[in-house]
Design a protein around this nucleic acid. Structure first.
Lengths: 153, 153
DNA sequence: CCTTGACCTTGCCATGATGGGAAGCCCCAT
DNA sequence: ATGGGGCTTCCCATCATGGCAAGGTCAAGG
């Protein structure tokens, strides 16, 4: 089966299949004499595994670990469980952060008249003239993860 | 004041200040004869506004809109409110998605013994041999947003 | 047998927001 | 005047993904 069919059957785009191969997440595919990648049902099975893990928000690194465990018949289920739990905790933390933001926004929106007049507590809040409240720290904490990073799944 | 001090006072790294200038989010800074960027208190004020908006999860595009409204004395507070609400709804949707994932993971983890044996329902679940359940569609829906994209704030 | 269109190949570029680093200039205190 | 730290620009990397382009291949129909 060629890459298009493997894509259809696994739900992973052809582009991503090639990418996964390139970064070593999946082994290099067999090739037909013409150079086309050739997949077996087992490959599709693996791709589907990847797709599901991805749907649960696992990163490539996490999927790598899961795949290793999947293939390892001597695995300890405790290791798998630990991975899942770590991922869940990660998500719970992100959720809490997003909830903070959403709550703040909703509260601000609630206090805004939302009419034709220009005065708006939302802008006022964003524009408060508070000191950075970071003591004598000259630059932002180097190892503090950035907002975007913290938010990403 | 030079970029380092503006950074300290605003909580925005020098790197990001230059970036914001480059993409046109903030106007080009004045320069000293030596070519150093020179900032006034008003600039720091604006940077702080940006930092706060970022902390609420607004993207650069959203911040651009907020800044425009902030500067526009003829704004309608309804427009600001709409921005905040849209952002909040966006967040609520992402939260729901993350909660789905976390819930699934926790449930799977709960059913896993987590011992020395290899059998694990988590891996079993990821490896289910279900058909892609997408009818006769050959490739994934072109305009379906990717998981990662959906998750990002 | 040849054409056509759908598929495959590789390779490069872009995303968004951010950090890292290099090479070179500038400023101030000793 | 020298040294160290700050500034400048420019380039590269991240992560997972899509898009595009140039060229090879396959299968169906004339």
């Amino acid at each position: 089966m060629n890459i298009g069919e493997a894509s259809t059957q696994s739900g992973v785009t052809a582009k991503m299949i090639r990418y996964y191969e390139q970064i070593g997440l999946i082994p290099r595919a067999e090739r037909t004499p013409a150079g086309y990648r050739d997949y077996a049902d087992a490959d599709v099975h693996m791709l589907r595994f990847i797709a599901r893990a991805r749907d649960l928000g696992f990163s490539i690194a996490g999927i790598t670990e899961l795949l290793d465990l999947w293939r390892n018949k001597d695995r300890r289920s405790a290791d798998v469980k630990a991975l899942a739990q770590a991922r869940a905790e990660d998500l719970r933390q992100k959720i809490a952060h997003l909830q903070d933001m959403a709550g703040t926004l909703e509260e601000l929106a609630r206090t805004c008249a939302g009419n034709e007049r220009p005065d708006c507590p939302i802008l006022q809040e964003l524009a408060v003239q508070t000191a950075p409240a970071q003591g004598n720290r000259k630059y932002r904490n180097k190892d503090s993860t950035s907002i975007q990073e913290r938010i990403r799944s």
